[in-house]
Write a protein that binds this DNA or RNA. Structure first.
Lengths: 118, 118
DNA sequence: TCCATAATTCCAGACTTATAGAATTATAAT
DNA sequence: ATTATAATTCTATAAGTCTGGAATTATGGA
């Protein structure tokens, strides 16, 4: 993950409509949501929403796939996680005390598996 | 942590000079760095840097304190962590599989304490 | 007081982003 | 072919951001 990709992702999420879109898509994984329904649920005109979805796509945070007349959008959770990792590693590397409480906070909601093998 | 505060923080970090500043300040904790030295190290004019520092301050990511003629800037790691927590909790709540690998990735660099007590 | 240093604020120009109406493209049903 | 639905692209406007020169404020030393 390069820092330019991180900046793109941060900029994409630093806008209320787009943050709402991403949260909606995360909550609707893995089914995804058609563009029109996203626009309807968030009460934003379809063309405006299309512009926002394009920003999220360029940032790598969402992917889309046509299904008949609809275009289904889904959150790219792996990309999101790699952005978070980049950001946290930066401070974690030098400052373990930053990440320790965060890990402690996150651990209860995540299955206590053994360390990743990838 | 409200979502408006998160958007402010994301917007502040979604700019290369400011991301560099924040990384520099994280690496220089807890001593901090005077404004002029930040500008010099990142090769940015003092007034331009001042504008960036002001954005980071409004976003709650840095704090400053005058020491004689210098103004010392420091990263606010707690605020940064609460931004990260907000973002991750959102996906963690619905999608544990997102956070599990991240926690696994972060754990090795952080002391394996028992869960937080705050 | 006078000067030097450190940082900020003021200001203007160039650039980018957010928004949405109108037009267009793509798909499917009749 | 015609019509309807779903989404995007075109275009324009309003608003916001990034940048840095010039002026200003704050501090400290001679």
């Amino acid at each position: 993950m390069e820092s330019e990709a991180v900046i793109l992702a941060l900029a994409a999420l630093a806008q209320s409509t787009r943050l709402d879109v991403f949260r909606l898509l995360v909550s609707r994984e893995p089914a995804g949501v058609p563009a029109g329904e996203i626009a309807r649920e968030l009460a934003v005109p379809a063309n405006t929403m299309s512009a926002h979805l394009s920003v999220l796509t360029r940032a790598g945070l969402v992917r889309s796939e046509r299904r008949s007349r609809s275009i289904i959008y889904r959150a790219d959770l792996e990309h999101f996680r790699s952005v978070a990792t980049f950001l946290l590693k930066d401070c974690c590397g030098g400052r373990p005390e930053v990440c320790a409480p965060l890990v402690a906070d996150l651990t209860p909601c995540c299955p206590p598996k053994e360390p990743a093998h990838g």
